[in-house]
Design a protein around this nucleic acid. Sequence first.
DNA 1: ATTAAAATTGGACGCTGTTCAATTTCCATA
DNA 2: TATGGAAATTGAACAGCGTCCAATTTTAAT
Lengths: 203, 203
Amino acid sequence: MGRRSDHSRAELEALILDAGQALMAEVGLARFSAREVAKRIGYSVGTIMHMFGGIDPLVMAINSRTFLLWADWLEHRLSGLRGQERIEALVRGYFEFAEGHPNLWAAIYAHRLPEGTGLPEPLADQRARLTAIVTREVSAILAEERQEDAPSLARSLVATVHGHCSFALGGSFALLGETEPLALALRRVDEILRANGAALAEF
Amino acid sequence: MGRRSDHSRAELEALILDAGQALMAEVGLARFSAREVAKRIGYSVGTIMHMFGGIDPLVMAINSRTFLLWADWLEHRLSGLRGQERIEALVRGYFEFAEGHPNLWAAIYAHRLPEGTGLPEPLADQRARLTAIVTREVSAILAEERQEDAPSLARSLVATVHGHCSFALGGSFALLGETEPLALALRRVDEILRANGAALAEF
DNA sequence: ATTAAAATTGGACGCTGTTCAATTTCCATA
DNA sequence: TATGGAAATTGAACAGCGTCCAATTTTAAT
């Protein structure tokens, strides 16, 4: 025991986050376990506790990492698209990422940090990247005199799509007999954008 | 030990659900504990396990109960209102209930039942009541030739408001600098209803 | 080489959900 | 009213969890 220079501080952190995110993807937040992460990387639980300070900060770090993954994936998905195709790709992208990584996605919204504790600045920045992408795209199809509405409108659109995606993956829509959640979300986004003066082609 | 007729079967179930819901409201899903519920009602954990079959079914029952509470509260809130005031009251009601019972509300959406297991019919019915109210109100302000759109539109509106409420209580909006989540939700609902031919007064 | 500091461990603690044999109570029948 | 079988309830056991910390080992500086 003691400082084994098998891994540097940064390497060890990456090791923990890699294994942690993998475990989260496999079993979800409810069955996530710091002990299991420790077992997988060959360190003791104490090491993880010492580095992150508890299981909540660790989960926060993993979730912020998921946001990064998500944002990169979205950007890649936008490349080559033009005009309002890009907006549609954002909505589809939201759903597809969530469906492709349901446990990672659900962990983001199921995990509530004990009251009072806010996100450390760097983690907050990682999370804001996703909305920044949407703001940029919304801005691009908004008239010049409505540019100032873009940030607020983007946040609201993300919330709208999130609500539909959340009901789709959480089973609420299935419970209510709704079979086309994505189509619903796409229509709402279209309506909202038109109502706010976006330049969209006729249906 | 043995069948103590202190309480009938139904009484005991109500006792467990009462104490369970109270505990959920106090500590939230993450710190919810069947053992603590047992302690509070003076029975052993085994009794709860035997009645509900596990902690997941118990949480499901509590959450469905929360839906009932919510629906009743909403109905009461609608009484005396007319026209589009009723739609506005639904949106405000969604936010106010969530803000008034944050742990109960969050537990509904944070709890994901282990895959494959669906809700028992009676519980599903309890949950559908809330959307049924919205469908009724949406139907009331929709033109006759658009009546068939009401159920789907209502589900979508609930999802939209849920998304905004979820971002508000979960801290996403705060993180992104949004300070007026309710106002945002109200505007989106107005836009969506107008886009679908609802009879709403000029702003 | 010595020493102070940092990293890592393993074990303890109290908690959790789940299971089940043993016990107690109830109800129906004789 | 006595009795037997069925149902309810318990308490203890189990494995796992997050958290903590004294003890140990390694590293880096002197």
